[in-house]
């Protein structure tokens, strides 16, 4: 919270006003820029629902999808994940944390020429199964791994 204030103080003239407007919530979510964001998918509570929200009918388990992460995460606020797909024509990669309030954490679109592998960090509320969902050649594939969390990252 204090970050906001600091930024406002730091910002000059017009920027400070923008900052105030933003922190007061005057920019209503749902305007044009937000339409590209797949809200339905980010509100799902299970893998099956997420697949549906992304336009698929079901997903098959595949050994060609690989999750690299620690087996035990000491700090649930920052859990590093690398997801790689060896499937040909990989179009997108998504990361789902089963026991988070909303399962979908992040989704990446992989254009041609980009390696089907991304690394990022996510928050985990508690020990949970983590699923990497890959869309390749129009079909969905997934792999699941359990990650134990010592200290949850959502309670603050």
């Amino acid at each position: 919270m204090n970050d906001d204030r600091r930024k406002v103080l730091k910002g000059t003239g017009g920027m400070a006003v923008m900052g105030l407007a933003a922190s007061a919530g005057l920019f209503v979510p749902g305007s044009a820029w937000a339409q590209a964001w797949n809200k339905a998918a980010f509100e799902t509570k299970s893998l099956a629902d997420t697949v549906k929200a992304m336009g698929g009918t079901g997903a098959t388990e595949s050994k060609d999808v690989v999750i690299t992460s620690p087996d035990i995460a000491e700090n649930g606020a920052v859990v590093p994940f690398t997801i790689a797909s060896r499937l040909p024509k990989t179009e997108s990669i998504a990361l789902l944390v089963e026991k988070n309030p909303n399962v979908l954490a992040a989704s990446f679109n992989i254009p041609q020429g980009t390696e089907a592998g991304v690394t990022t960090r996510v928050k985990m509320g508690q020990t949970s199964n983590v699923t990497a969902l890959v869309k390749a050649d129009g079909k969905f594939y997934y792999t699941t791994k359990e990650v134990k969390v010592t200290l949850g990252g959502c309670g603050g």
Binding site: N102, A105, A106
Partner: peptide, 11 residues
């Protein structure tokens, strides 16, 4: 070369 959609679960 890459586009991503994120939820609040990203660190």
């Amino acid at each position: 070369v890459l586009s991503a959609e994120w939820g609040p679960a990203v660190s």
